[in-house]
Design a protein around this nucleic acid. Structure first.
Lengths: 194, 194
DNA sequence: CCTACCGATCGGTAGG
DNA sequence: CCTACCGATCGGTAGG
């Protein structure tokens, strides 16, 4: 039974992603990546154009996944609370689906150079905006109540994107979903009396 | 009226903190720091031992502030909800008090080397533990209800420590306090009926 | 995919 | 606080 070997290009990208997460992009050298794969640094350039191109691929792959996820949620025809929870769950699933890439996406994007840097930031804003709209809908329907929508979105996204730093995964991914969705939904639910 | 000049050592530390925040520790060179202060790189060593010593000072200064803050809260004799809110407010105040140092504290500590690295991590754990105890108290008194205390603490701290990345400070610091305290307290408050 | 190598830059020291 | 400099390491290329 011959095992299907992983393409070298993918091996390099995976090794780089792990190293970018643990050491940071700037502190990771092409020699570190090559050594992890078992080849020489110069050989990487047979498969990939540059160190930054690896970073670009990781960052934009994740950004696209997040945006795609929330667009799917927007199209569904459910209550605003269900939509909100679905958006949170989508986000958690993408992160737990690739923790290393999520860490690079969140911590290393500043090392992108123009014009891709601006393009990346624009995608982040687009994503935040989509989240805002979902919350706004709930506010208009009287099920949510927030002090400031921008605050709420930033607080939530910081929390979710912080998962990649947790030393302590007490909950399995499926439960993490629900825990976040409930925690946040309750945090913005309109209080009947206080 | 002679202006009191800021000591060169402090100037260097401030410049370094800002650069560590914006470029990251690894991507910041002693020449960058020196240039920002207006001296030569070699001159920094008349004031400071090494690049890592600057990082050490920033990280431990912040860690101590956080621990000191929550210890003060623990000593107060108020309801568990008030104590919880005070702990959140203490955290927000420390961050907004020095955003750049907070960013370095949260994003760059992995560049510390042993044995200080382990010491730093132990301080983070101590802080998390203090937060857990406050929540536990509220759970035992029947005012809070959480799925998992570790989850709650990690989710909250990720959110709070994420403030330094916000591009969007919609709320002034005093309101940020209250917004966080209310958002989280509501997120863990025991629900009468659902 | 390798060997051999490039110019640039790094943290830090010597000596004043 | 500066000039001059050290060995190490960097991202990347030439040529096979």
């Amino acid at each position: 039974m011959p095992t299907v070997s992983i393409p070298r290009k993918e091996q390099i990208e995976t090794a780089a992603t792990d190293l970018f997460k643990s050491r940071g992009y700037a502190a990771t050298s092409m020699r570190h990546i090559a050594s992890k794969v078992g080849i020489e640094a110069a050989s990487i350039y047979s498969h990939l154009k540059s160190k930054e191109h690896i970073l670009i691929k990781i960052c934009f792959k994740m950004a696209k996944e997040f945006i795609e996820g929330i667009k799917l949620v927007q199209k569904t025809n459910v209550t605003s609370e269900a939509k909100f929870k679905a958006a949170v769950i989508s986000h958690v699933n993408i992160i737990t689906g690739d923790i290393a890439a999520s860490a690079v996406f969140w911590n290393e994007w500043r090392h992108l150079s123009e014009p891709l840097l601006s393009e990346f930031v624009a995608m982040q804003r687009e994503y935040e905006q989509a989240f805002k709209l979902i919350i706004e809908q709930g506010v208009n329907e009287g099920v949510f109540e927030v002090r400031d929508i921008s605050f709420t979105v930033m607080a939530m996204l910081s929390s979710l994107n912080g998962i990649q730093k947790w030393h302590n995964y007490t909950l399995p991914p499926e439960e993490l979903n629900e825990a976040f969705a409930t925690f946040f939904a309750q945090g913005i639910r309109k209080q009947v009396e206080e």
